[in-house]
Simulated assay, not measured.
Amino acid sequence: MALYLALTIPLPFLSQVTASLVPPALLWLGIGFGFVALYGALSERVILDEQKIQVSYPRWVPRFFRKGWELPWTEVKDLKLRTTGQGGIVYYFVSHSGQGYLLPMRVVGFSKLVQLVQNKTGIDTSDVRPLAQPWMYLILLTFTLLLFFVDSWTIWTAVSLGKLT
């Protein structure tokens, strides 16, 4: 969310300074809608219980935007590894009907989730690792904060030069 804000907040100011054809008010509106959409996409909930694993979203998130799923533990046939286009590794639950369900990988307590999957399904999960490591998030946070600093300086410079009123 912070990266989204760091990337978008300067746009209305730059639009006004450069006399862009896109009015700043329209950009603010778009940023607001984008923020809500991103928040909805990132509000995924992973629910585990004795019978199933479920991925759901709050009721206000339209189903056409993000649709959840649930899979009873008894329906899990296998856990298949797949590589991503960026070279990462993700895992899919494969049901007895052959349908795939993406294993949620960006959850707090991922190792506990993987252990529970192993306990409930009997599938060996000892090689399953999270997609992103904590140090990756630290790098992202560092560059996001740096971008906020540059954004602040840019906006302050434009305002102090009297280009924004």
Rank of each mutant, 00 (worst) to 15 (best):
G85L: 12
S56C: 13
T83A: 11
P58N: 09
G40W: 11
R45W: 03
V114H: 00
L103C: 00
G88V: 11
M105P: 00
F33V: 15
S97T: 15
R106D: 13
V55N: 06
I89H: 13
T83Y: 12
T74R: 15
E50L: 02
K112C: 00
L79Q: 01
L81F: 01
L102M: 04
G87I: 11
L102K: 06
R59E: 09
I47T: 13
W69T: 05
G32N: 12
L81M: 06
Y91C: 02
I89V: 15
F64I: 03
K77D: 14
M105F: 02
G40D: 07
Y91L: 05
S56P: 05
W69S: 06
M105T: 01
G87T: 13
V46D: 07
I53H: 02
L103W: 01
V90A: 03
L29Y: 06
L113Y: 03
L42A: 10
V108R: 09
G34L: 14
K112S: 02
R59Q: 09
V55L: 07
Y57M: 10
R59S: 12
S56E: 14
G98D: 05
S111D: 07
K52L: 13
V61K: 12
L27V: 09
V76I: 09
Q54V: 04
I53N: 03
D78G: 03
R59H: 09
Y92E: 06
V46N: 10
K67I: 00
S43W: 09
Y101K: 06
S97H: 07
S111K: 05
V94K: 05
S97L: 11
F110T: 02
L29A: 13
